[in-house]
């Protein structure tokens, strides 16, 4: 087994382990066991917060979205037993709640003042990260969500399509277009 295939195999194993963990915790949550809620929060909060932050462009709104999503999960808990893909289901709820926030506050948002933070541990990449943080808000919310789900949630375009309510081809197209635009903006800053 080559190094590349070993890495790929390890990635798949880790991903499936994580999915299994989410499913087990989900069953605890749906079954009303006390560790279900906190467990689900610990497993998914960062991912949900990131998606909400990238979609809304506001840390406060992202916190509200995460809180709203977990409250809705509690309300719907008795009917959640039939959900087969909990992670996708919760991401879809998060995306939907984020879009609701965007619709409510659209007339008041000032794009020039908004940044979507992204962090780089490597000092050499911090300048790029800062620049991208400023540019991300110029992408449409659907493209931002697609980029986030593809690169940071590591979902397939088919799964992203299900979450964002778009065909697979559209999801792939949004991703490609978003990266193309970002590259163009980073290489040729707006005058």
């Amino acid at each position: 087994m080559s190094a590349v295939s070993q890495t790929l195999w390890l990635t798949e194993v880790l991903a499936s382990t994580n999915e299994d963990e989410i499913k087990n915790t989900w069953l605890d949550f749906v079954g009303g066991r006390p560790n279900g809620g906190p467990g689900l929060y610990d497993l998914l909060a960062d991912e949900l917060y990131g998606l909400a932050l990238w979609t809304t462009g506001s840390a406060d709104d992202a916190c509200d979205v995460v809180q709203t999503v977990f409250l809705k999960l509690l309300e719907r808990r008795p009917a959640l037993g039939r959900v087969r893909h909990p992670r996708s289901y919760i991401l879809r709820m998060t995306r939907s709640a984020s879009i609701d926030v965007l619709r409510r506050r659209r007339p008041t948002i000032d794009v020039a003042e908004v940044e979507i933070p992204i962090l780089a541990s490597d000092p050499a990449r911090r300048v790029d990260a800062r620049r991208i943080s400023q540019l991300l808000i110029r992408l449409p919310p659907n493209q931002r969500a697609t980029v986030y789900l593809r690169l940071f949630s590591d979902l397939s375009f088919r799964q992203i399509g299900v979450i964002t309510g778009a065909p697979t081809f559209t999801a792939a197209s949004r991703f490609r277009l978003a990266l193309q635009r970002l590259r163009t903006w980073v290489e040729r800053p707006k005058r």
Binding site: G37, A45, Y49, L53, V66, F70, L74, R125, I132
Partner: peptide, 30 residues
């Protein structure tokens, strides 16, 4: 363009807020 970067994590202050709303909203029972 995002290589070596990662989005910020959820703030630590959010966890107790969400978990508190869990406790107050519903009693966990089978």
């Amino acid at each position: 363009p995002f290589e070596g970067m990662e989005p910020p994590k959820a703030p630590a202050s959010l966890r107790p807020i969400v978990l508190q709303s869990f406790d107050s909203s519903i009693e966990f029972e089978s």
